[in-house]
Simulated assay, not measured.
Amino acid sequence: MSKSLFRLGLIVNPWAGIGGPAGLKGSDGNAAEMARSTGAAQRAPQRMARALAALSEERVKITTLGFAGDMGEGVAANWSFEVLGSAATEPSTAHDTVRAARALCDAGCDLILFAGGDGTARDIYRAVGDAVPVLGVPAGVKMHSGVYAVSPESAAEIVAAMVRGDWVDVSCEEVRDIDEDAFRSGRVSTRYYGELLVPRVGQYLQATKVSGREVEELVVADIAAEVVEQLDDQTLYVVGPGSTTAGIMVELGLDNTLLGVDVVQSGKLTASDVSAEQLEQLCDQHPGDVVIIVTAIGRQGHILGRGNQQISPSVVRRAGPQNLWVVATKSKLSELEGRPLLVDSNDRDLDLSLEGFIRVITGYQDSVLYRVSASGV
């Protein structure tokens, strides 16, 4: 069945921020227990409820999923909700947050929306890394991480933009947490833990622009520079046809088959203009990861199944959806006029599994989330 509804994963850390009103300067460790003993009210469920209330107009287009009780289901009483599990203990712990995040990722949610603080962001990062977009509803005492909307209502605006298929930028933002014991002693000491993939609604400013319009050659060069920075020597890269992907080969100083599929490893051309059978053999023989790099066909939006049939369903499965990299200029995406990117691999089950939102590299350190469909709607 096609994923016609936006799948919004919810995680609520019910006790996040409870130590703030009590003057405990955080909610980690014994602070949360001390705050609960005083009868302090939960903040995070109320903050998530505000975000969902602001999303009410988009409700018919969204299905929510997550853990039962206070960790998600409790704040989504009037929403379609899919229960994936429940907290192992009451009150819930960081271990439950990790379990919930992994379950949401495995269930193919389009976005994890969480209510909590920096400790919650740390737990979610530990669970999913940058495998799925994540957005925080600020509910903690201290929030040094760059993963939060400025308010519950602002979080709702970002989610609504994704649901409508509007432009939504995405970037890797830092997860940081403060040493609460040091903070209570008057010292501010934060630690970097990693980065989450975070959507944001903002202006689409491009460094390589003239009179507000993208200069195609410069933007393609920017995209190529961004991709090349991410390459490693252990991965086998399958480079699909097109002028945007050709820019990556130019950046690498390699010959390119403009209308064919090339294979690269360790900065060298492993094979050029391969057939589906040749590519499957190369992937089977490679012991490490396989990454597929494709672009969208102008005005049509196909990323699989048009002009790159050499990239067979078995190759896509070998790589995995997390290793399907899409590159495109924002001008090319704008030509779609809001229509989704399309997959037509000749394997219906595979195509349906790829539906949802994908990260599209649109420049140097610049990318957006864009919807993928197997049906064109």
Score class of each variant (00 low, 15 high):
residue 154 S to G: 08
residue 288 G to D: 15
residue 200 R to S: 06
residue 149 A to C: 09
residue 345 S to C: 03
residue 47 R to L: 13
residue 233 D to Y: 02
residue 41 A to L: 11
residue 91 P to V: 04
residue 234 Q to W: 04
residue 110 D to H: 13
residue 312 S to V: 06
residue 245 T to I: 10
residue 270 T to H: 00
residue 324 L to A: 05
residue 226 E to D: 14
residue 108 G to E: 10
residue 180 E to H: 14
residue 160 A to C: 06
residue 172 C to T: 06
residue 193 Y to C: 00
residue 260 G to N: 06
residue 38 T to Y: 09
residue 80 S to V: 06
residue 225 A to R: 15
residue 285 Q to P: 00
residue 105 C to Y: 09
residue 102 R to S: 08
residue 167 W to I: 05
residue 93 T to F: 03
residue 335 E to P: 00
residue 375 S to F: 01
residue 70 D to M: 10
residue 160 A to I: 10
residue 199 P to I: 13
residue 248 I to T: 10
residue 192 Y to Q: 12
residue 205 L to V: 12
residue 151 S to L: 12
residue 117 G to H: 02
residue 347 D to R: 05
residue 248 I to A: 05
residue 257 T to K: 05
residue 264 V to C: 02
residue 268 K to T: 01
residue 97 T to S: 12
residue 127 A to K: 06
residue 26 G to H: 03
residue 247 G to F: 13
residue 12 V to G: 00
residue 50 R to H: 01
residue 258 L to N: 05
residue 337 E to M: 10
residue 321 P to N: 11
residue 126 R to P: 00
residue 234 Q to A: 14
residue 347 D to S: 11
residue 39 G to H: 11
residue 247 G to H: 06
residue 141 V to A: 07
residue 300 Q to Y: 07
residue 75 V to A: 01
residue 345 S to L: 07
residue 295 T to K: 10
residue 165 G to L: 14
residue 294 V to H: 06
residue 34 M to S: 04
residue 299 R to Q: 07
residue 181 D to F: 03
residue 233 D to R: 06
residue 167 W to Y: 05
residue 30 N to S: 13
residue 127 A to L: 09
residue 219 V to Q: 07
residue 1 M to K: 05
residue 343 V to D: 03
residue 320 G to S: 12
residue 327 V to Q: 11
residue 286 H to T: 07
residue 157 E to D: 03
residue 120 T to C: 03
residue 91 P to F: 12
residue 21 P to N: 13
residue 178 I to A: 09
residue 326 V to F: 07
residue 231 L to I: 12
residue 359 R to M: 05
residue 67 F to D: 04
residue 340 P to R: 02
residue 158 I to S: 04
residue 323 N to P: 00
residue 302 H to L: 04
residue 183 F to V: 08
residue 352 L to Y: 01
residue 220 V to Y: 01
residue 192 Y to K: 06
residue 195 E to K: 12
residue 102 R to K: 14
residue 57 E to S: 10
residue 51 A to E: 12
residue 298 G to T: 11
residue 107 A to P: 05
residue 345 S to F: 10
residue 73 E to S: 11
residue 203 Q to K: 13
residue 154 S to K: 15
residue 89 T to V: 06
residue 280 E to G: 02
residue 331 S to E: 14
residue 200 R to P: 00
residue 201 V to S: 08
residue 208 T to A: 15
residue 256 N to D: 11
residue 326 V to G: 00
residue 137 V to R: 05
residue 33 E to Q: 13
residue 51 A to Y: 09
residue 314 S to C: 01
residue 189 S to N: 06
residue 53 A to L: 13
residue 170 V to C: 15
residue 126 R to L: 07
residue 193 Y to K: 01
residue 75 V to M: 07
residue 55 L to V: 07
residue 377 V to Q: 14
residue 260 G to D: 04
residue 135 L to W: 13
residue 73 E to F: 05
residue 206 Q to L: 09
residue 68 A to I: 10
residue 178 I to K: 04
residue 315 V to A: 03
residue 146 G to N: 12
residue 47 R to H: 11
residue 17 G to L: 02
residue 92 S to L: 07
residue 218 L to E: 15
residue 375 S to H: 03
residue 134 V to Y: 11
residue 302 H to I: 01
residue 212 G to R: 15
residue 314 S to K: 15
residue 291 V to I: 13
residue 165 G to I: 10
residue 205 L to W: 08
residue 246 A to R: 10
residue 262 D to Q: 05
residue 137 V to N: 03
residue 325 W to E: 09
residue 85 G to R: 14
residue 233 D to A: 11
residue 287 P to F: 07
residue 140 G to P: 08
